[in-house]
Design a binder for these strands. Structure first.
Length: 434
RNA sequence: CGGGGAGUGGCGCAGUCUGGUAGCGCAUCUGCUUUGGGAGCAGAGGGCCGCAGGUUCGAAUCCUGUCUCCCCGACCA
């Protein structure tokens, strides 16, 4: 997808040298310092241009893997009516986390914290035959949960972007297949984001079985604690057999782990780490289809309540998780797949005609090759430009200065490793595109 | 929701105890010198001190109320 390039002199990138006092964890501090977000109220953030680019890229990867898994995208509204939630009985059950208000007609409304009711009502009204099942539908939409205590920036905001998918099947076997498809999609999604996610068995409620998993990114700042078989660390997540392998290995959240009487993992193999929950999938059968009167006609003419599952990914939270997993003392280190720009282009001397000419020529060349470029053409000193580039964490930085221009070279730096090389103007592109 | 802390220029803070012309660093603007890892000098702009009452000749400072934000705990993508 073409994302375009930008001249920094025309962009909005309010970076901060100092760390805002309100931010406690490193991802929150860096998101503020790198000009990705700005807080507007407790747990509510504006996404500045650079942050929005990353958010869009994360969402695109999630979308790509959902589509690949056969899920179908739609878009449901943020605002829902209380009546819809009364059909499932959850309007009264949900509690103060749900943001409720009235419209001008005095009708009770809410800002959706999730969409089971809405998708069920849509599917109920559209589908009457077994021929239209199975289906998995998803959308990527803003949610609001009035958390008692928002914290950690976008990792635990009140307003957040979430991918939520819902599957509808005629029988348990089909439901399990839909669940498995999402399980696999999640592994692919997190791998594509440059993350290593651990699927952790989660409490399943009345259904039982092994049909609920949370996906955790291991990080010391994680809010939950997970115990798992360290054999899991060695699993190649891109292997087609990975889903089956992983589900055979022990992994539990602390609370569940405590309840286990005979842990199957020998003590020396039991790892204990903190994790950031970035996904949660579960199968809940007819809970909503029964409560909301959704029936389809089966092959034998009987009416049945489809079996449902729901599958969430915290899209905005993922940005925090990625930074927690990938940063250093100088700033963010974006994985290539989600970086807001592929290349940062630093012109050290904008007042030097030869430097500027070379910089603009190189920008055009990179763009022509399909790379997005953030071109620092500001009239500022080298040190400031280097520091900014490190802070915002673009995968590659190319520096053009008078010395290099005279010699026909530029400096190419890989953010993740810090490796720098003087390369000829002509060969730069080849180094970037293997 | 219980416990704690904080609101002073865009950011980080001092000043509050003991009332008396609102300060510092960074950032911003102008000029000159600089320019390969957050430059130097000189000058400048920007704040009804969260808000509302009250006490006082006089309130950032004292009193009352209120709003907001942050942290620790119980809950959540």
């Amino acid at each position: 997808m073409f994302r375009g390039s930008m001249l920094l002199s025309r962009y909005l990138l309010p970076v901060m040298k100092e760390t805002p006092a309100d931010a406690q964890i490193v991802s929150h501090q860096l998101m503020l310092r790198a000009g990705l977000i700005r807080q507007t109220a407790a747990g509510i953030y504006a996404w500045l241009p650079l942050g929005l680019r990353v958010l869009d890229r994360i969402a695109d990867i999630v979308r790509r893997e959902q589509n690949r898994a056969g899920a179908v995208e739609l878009l449901m509204p943020t605002i829902q009516s209380a009546d819809l939630w009364r059909q499932s009985g959850r309007y009264d059950a949900y509690g103060p986390e749900m943001l409720r208000f009235q419209d001008r007609g005095g009708r009770e409304m809410l800002y959706g914290p999730t969409n089971e009711e809405m998708i069920t009502s849509i599917f109920r009204d559209c589908v009457k035959s077994y021929r239209d099942l199975p289906r998995t539908l998803y959308h990527i939409q803003w949610k609001f949960r009035d958390e008692v205590r928002p914290r950690f920036g976008v990792m635990r905001g009140r307003e957040f972007l979430m991918k939520d998918a819902y599957s509808f099947d005629m029988d348990e076997e089909g439901g399990r297949a839909s669940y498995d498809a999402q399980f696999t999609a999640y592994l692919r999604t997190f791998a594509a984001l440059g993350l290593r996610a651990v699927p952790v068995r989660a409490p399943t409620g009345p259904i039982g079985g092994d049909l609920s998993h949370e996906f955790h990114i291991l990080a010391d700042t994680g809010e939950s604690e997970v115990f798992y078989d360290s054999a899991l660390d060695a699993v190649d997540l891109t292997d087609p057999d990975a889903p089956a392998t992983l589900r055979g290995l022990y992994a539990m959240e602390a609370e569940e782990h405590e309840k286990v009487v005979n842990c199957p993992v020998p003590p020396e193999r039991l790892a204990k780490r903190r994790g950031i929950e970035v996904g949660h999938i579960f199968f809940f059968g007819t809970k909503y289809s029964a409560a909301m009167g959704m029936q389809v006609q089966a092959k034998d003419g009987s009416l049945v309540n489809p079996l449902m599952g729901s599958y969430g990914v915290g899209v905005s939270r993922l940005m925090g998780a990625i930074i927690e997993a990938s940063h250093d003392s100088a700033g963010i280190v974006w994985p290539d797949s989600v970086a807001p720009f592929d290349v940062g282009l630093i012109n050290l001397r904008v007042d030097d005609a030869a430097c500027s000419e070379a910089a603009h020529a190189l920008q055009a060349k990179l763009e022509a090759a399909g790379l997005s470029v953030l071109h620092d053409d500001r009239d500022a000193r080298g040190g400031e430009k280097f520091a900014t580039m490190d802070l915002i964490g673009l995968p590659w930085a190319i520096t053009i200065g008078p010395k290099g221009v005279a010699a026909g070279t530029v400096e190419l730096k890989r953010r993740a490793t810090g490796e720098k090389h003087e390369v000829s103007f002509e060969s730069v592109l080849a180094k970037l595109i293997p």
